[in-house]
């Protein structure tokens, strides 16, 4: 088990490194660097000025060196001229001798956001907390709903109830967030239908989440994820209900309720558990859409802002965080699967 964990952690680290390198390379193309120079310096710089600006600010080094600097594995660049001492890790007006040699992710320095003029580390932490709040409520709403629907549908396969609930779950998986969000806002929050039960934006939910301003975004994400989990639960439940031990229980004359709740449920819930964990990457995707749609300034919203404005440090930080979240949930789902299912043992 320890060896398995170590190997998985190693692969995870390698994946995170590769992905951050890819994002780094794609956001640091020459055309992007020119844009950065013009944004930081002066919009009407000539090509020669751009080049000298890049040279002065450490952007002219090879890409891998700069990736190493960002990571904190390579010493940051320094430059001394008559106006003072400059460097990646040197604060304005500071000296090289007083500053650390390396400053990157490994040292906890995530860089500065070019659009929001804030340190990326705390910025991402606030956004992540906001998104985490939303994800928590999504889970609270989605998981019980999906499990109940799946178990009810799977307990009598082929019945009317099963048909109805299965069609419902197919309907929700076929509705992407930007469709269900638009329909929900139009029906429940617009003046056109007259049902102004909820608010169409969730901006106020960032400080003070209430049922009125937070329910629609949470429901929008939960609906899309729910159908898939419900279908998995149904398939797993239907399989368990045909197994020998359930037949034995029925032949012994146990009431149907008890068979479902005491005997079938526990075995039927193993498969959905992994699916719920593996839903996280999809939920992250939905979060980006829903946060944009409802103007809720969480991680997904920040991702769109950073990507749209080529905010390199912020983009790198967010992609690192989301990749780690995805990989961690995969790891947890693998471990949980082993614990829940004693038939699987990893040497």
């Amino acid at each position: 088990m320890i060896l398995f964990l170590l190997r998985r952690l190693g692969v995870m680290l390698l994946t995170a490194l590769c992905l951050s390198l890819i994002v780094f390379a794609l956001t640091n193309l020459p055309a992007n660097l020119e844009k950065i120079a013009k944004f930081e310096g002066n919009a009407r710089m000539s090509d020669a000025q751009v080049e000298s600006w890049l040279e002065k600010n450490g952007y002219a080094q090879p890409m891998l060196v700069r990736y190493g600097e960002w990571l904190g594995a390579w010493p940051g660049w320094t430059r001394t001229d008559e106006t003072g001492e400059y460097g990646r890790c040197v604060p304005v007006g500071g000296t090289i001798a007083d500053s650390p040699a390396r400053c990157g992710i490994l040292q906890g320095e995530w860089g500065e956001s070019r659009v929001f003029r804030e340190d990326v580390g705390p910025f991402i932490a606030t956004r992540l907390a906001l998104t985490g709040k939303m994800m928590f409520w999504v889970m609270v709403l989605m998981v019980p709903m999906a499990l109940v629907i799946g178990v009810l549908a799977g307990m009598r396969e082929g019945s009317k109830l099963d048909r109805g609930l299965s069609t419902l779950s197919i309907l929700t998986t076929a509705t992407p967030e930007y469709v269900s969000g638009v329909i929900l806002i139009a029906v429940f929050a617009s003046s056109a239908f007259g049902l102004k039960w909820f608010k169409g934006t969730a901006t106020s939910a960032m400080e003070n989440a209430t049922f009125e301003n937070f329910f629609l975004p949470v429901l929008t994400i939960a609906l899309f994820g729910m159908g898939y989990i419900a279908r998995m639960t149904r398939a797993s439940m239907a399989e368990v209900m045909t197994s020998q031990y359930i037949r034995t229980a029925r032949l012994k004359g146990l009431p149907f309720r008890e068979i479902v709740l005491k005997h079938a449920l526990r075995n039927a819930l193993i498969a959905p558990f992994t699916v719920i964990m593996l839903q996280f990457p999809w939920l992250l995707n939905g979060v980006v859409i829903v946060e944009t749609l409802f103007n809720y300034k969480g991680l997904g919203w920040a991702l769109v802002q950073a990507a749209g404005n080529n905010d390199v440090d912020l983009l790198l930080g967010i992609s690192l965080v989301s990749v780690v979240v995805v990989l961690l949930t995969q790891l947890i789902s693998d471990i949980g699967y082993v614990y829940l299912n004693p038939r699987i043992r990893i040497a």
């Binding site: 995707n285 990507a307 749209g308 989301s322 990749v323």
Partner: peptide, 22 residues
């Protein structure tokens, strides 16, 4: 590796004019 990427980030990265230019 590709599956761990947030899809929307991948789209943004592939579709921006700078990258199309490259």
């Amino acid at each position: 590796l590709i599956l761990a990427f947030p899809v929307i980030l991948l789209f943004y990265l592939l579709v921006t004019p700078e990258i199309v230019e490259s």
